[in-house]
Computed example of a mutant assay.
Amino acid sequence: MPQSTTADPATAVARPRVAVTLGDPAGVGPELAVRLLAVDSNRAAADIIVVATRAELDRAQAEAGVTVPVSDDGAPGTVRLVDGLDEPGDDVPLREVSEAAGRVTLSRLERALDLARAGEVEAIVFAPLNKTSLHLAGMHEEDELRWFARELGHDGVTSELNILGQLWTARVTSHIPHGEVAPHITTDAVTRSLGLLHEVLRDTGISQPRIGVAALNPHNGENGLFGRQEIDEIAPAVEAAAARGWNVRGPFPADTIFLRRDEFDGILTMYHDQGQIAMKLLGFDGGVTVQGGLPVLIATPAHGTAFDLVGTGRAALTSTQNAFDIAASVAASRVAAPAAGTGA
Rank of each mutant, 00 (worst) to 15 (best):
E99A: 01
E99N: 02
A101S: 10
A101N: 08
G102R: 02
R103P: 03
V104L: 00
V104I: 09
L106I: 11
L106C: 07
S107W: 03
S107Y: 04
S107N: 14
L109S: 07
E110L: 13
E110F: 06
R111P: 08
D114N: 09
A116K: 06
A116R: 05
R117L: 12
A118M: 07
A118Y: 03
G119S: 05
A123N: 00
V125R: 05
A127P: 09
A127V: 11
P128M: 02
P128R: 01
L129K: 12
N130K: 11
K131F: 09
T132Y: 13
S133T: 11
L134I: 05
H135V: 11
M139P: 04
H140A: 15
E142F: 12
E142W: 14
D143F: 09
L145E: 10
L145H: 02
F148T: 03
A149N: 02
R150H: 04
E151Y: 06
L152G: 10
G156K: 04
T158F: 08
T158D: 11
T158Y: 03
T158W: 07
S159K: 05
N162K: 13
I163R: 13
I163Q: 13
I163L: 14
L164S: 05
L164D: 09
G165A: 05
G165W: 09
W168G: 07
T169V: 02
A170Q: 00
A170E: 01
R171L: 14
V172P: 00
V172K: 11
V172S: 10
T173W: 06
I176K: 00
I176S: 09
I176C: 07
I176R: 00
H178V: 15
H178A: 15
E180I: 12
E180R: 14
V181P: 11
A182C: 05
P183C: 01
I185M: 04
T186D: 04
T186F: 00
T187S: 12
T187N: 13
T187F: 00
D188W: 14
D188Y: 14
D188S: 14
A189F: 06
V190T: 08
T191K: 06
R192T: 11
S193A: 13
S193D: 00
S193F: 09
L201G: 05
L201S: 08
